[in-house]
């Protein structure tokens, strides 16, 4: 998690200052906006595991996000199960969905854009299913009964919600950092860089990839449950819609895929940009996505390693390797 250069340290410090400043601004608008951004940051961190470290760019993280949210909502609304248990069940459901999609896609050796298309298709199929069945509330979605309290995991005070989200984002980032420097992380990066070489070195690449999808699915499911607990309402378009999938991948790509801080920084930066543009241009609907597209294209063209990659080149801490051939 250590920054490797002055530039990265400044970037991380800026993000932290912004996040801390919300405690003093007491602005419900900014607080609500940042709460949303943090939930998206968790999906972005989920995408980062498969897309960033594993090089498997999914276009359908909504599949796991929505499954987590729906699993938790169904248990609470239809079966009256405790919110904490439903919370855990949502994470498990996300992981299972991730593993299922991964197992199917990798069984048939899907890679690159084919993998992206299959994940997109899964998310869309699930979206249509969710809007058709009674158990998922059909087209009208599911609403949690409003009863704030620790046992229902609902909190009136936005500052409490915000703090909980900050802690969860920090935990997911710590897990990401731990994964990155573990045997599993090294294997995942090896698979991204060169699958054949990885296989020759004794790596069961199929297992590693499915495992990565399961972990990523758990994080995405977690994000879905967080959304449910914060807003108390979900429907198929909100949690299985492609907007979720797009936001999941755009943050890490702009912030720096395969880094620990990139997804958070990219997501925060993008949301600030989108929100700012919305205010300037009087809430033109969908405008933030137009802007995201422009930023994404620029990032892919000029910043292949995202903001973290750009910042890494500014004021390197390590001594310059002048013998670099």
């Amino acid at each position: 998690m250590k920054p490797q250069s002055m530039g990265q340290a400044v970037l991380i410090a800026l993000a932290l200052i912004y996040l801390a400043s919300l405690y003093f601004m007491s602005s419900p608008v900014w607080m609500g906006f940042t709460i949303n951004a943090l939930i998206v940051a968790v999906v972005a961190l989920a995408w980062n595991i498969t897309g960033g470290f594993g090089g498997m760019a999914s276009f359908g993280h909504a599949a796991m996000y929505g499954t987590g949210a729906y699993a938790s909502a169904i248990l609470q609304v239809q079966y009256g199960i405790n919110a904490w248990i439903a919370f855990g069940a949502g994470i498990v459901a996300g992981a299972a969905m991730g593993a299922f999609i991964g197992a199917l896609a990798f069984r048939y050796g899907l890679k690159g854009s084919y993998f992206a298309l299959v994940t997109l298709a899964f998310a869309e199929v699930l979206r249509i299913c969710a809007s058709s069945f009674a158990i998922t509330g059909g087209g009208s979605g599911l609403q949690l009964r409003l009863e704030p309290g620790l046992s229902t995991l609902q909190f009136n005070d936005r500052a409490v919600v915000y703090t909980i989200l900050l802690v969860i984002v920090a935990l997911v980032m710590a897990l990401t950092a731990w994964l990155k420097y573990s045997r599993f992380g090294a294997y995942l990066i090896a698979v991204r860089e060169n699958e054949d070489a990885a296989r020759a070195l004794g790596i069961d690449t199929y297992r590693i990839k499915v495992k990565a999808m399961a972990i990523s699915g758990a994080f995405a499911g977690l994000a879905g449950v967080l959304y449910l607990q914060v807003w108390l309402f979900i429907d198929s378009a909100v949690v299985y819609g492609s907007a979720v999938s797009i936001e999941a991948l755009i943050g890490p790509i702009i912030g720096g895929a395969g880094t620990v801080w990139g997804p958070l920084i990219g997501t925060l930066g993008l949301h600030l940009l989108g929100e700012g543009a919305k205010h300037l241009l009087h809430n033109a609907p969908g405008l933030n996505f137009v802007l995201y597209a422009v930023v994404l294209i620029c990032a892919l063209r000029f910043l292949p390693q995202g903001l973290m990659g750009l910042a890494a080149r500014i004021g390197t801490f390590r001594k310059k390797e002048n013998d670099n051939a």
Binding site: A186, Y187, I189, R192, E193, L201, G202
Partner: peptide, 15 residues
């Protein structure tokens, strides 16, 4: 086929 994103030592460590 080196793993380009890793250092030499990390490459060997994958083995």
């Amino acid at each position: 086929q080196p793993f380009a994103g890793l250092t030499v030592q990390e490459n060997i460590a994958v083995g």
